[in-house]
């Protein structure tokens, strides 16, 4: 293994067609953003899988820690009043 600087890792997001959001497709190594885009084209869209590509260096992504999922997501679990079915309405009421 060399001690030289290796090409950094990039995350690739592809919009498969207009009207849809960009979705995470995978990652790849590239020297800079321009090369990351070109490599993403070759690696992830060889069969017309996309109309738009985003790349971002992986180190810039901040991810939540699944071990903290409890304190992060549980507060939403007991708030049934955020859902329409929480509210009792007579059957006669239409369009609501």
């Amino acid at each position: 293994m060399s001690n030289k600087k290796n090409w950094p890792l990039w995350e690739v997001f592809v919009r498969s067609k207009n009207g849809l959001e960009h979705r995470h497709f995978g990652s790849l190594h590239a020297a800079d953003a321009e090369m990351a885009l070109e490599n993403a084209r070759d690696v992830y869209t060889r069969r017309n899988e996309g109309v738009s590509i985003w790349v971002v260096e992986s180190k810039h992504i901040t991810a939540s820690n699944p071990e903290h999922n409890g304190e992060l997501f549980e507060p939403a679990q007991d708030k049934v009043y955020r859902h329409p079915t929480f509210y009792d309405l007579p059957d006669d009421v239409k369009h609501m």
Partner: peptide, 13 residues
């Protein structure tokens, strides 16, 4: 080639 690409990227930055 890999080294040259990295050197170029660093210079651009």
């Amino acid at each position: 080639v890999r080294d040259a690409a990295m050197a170029y990227a660093e210079k651009q930055q």
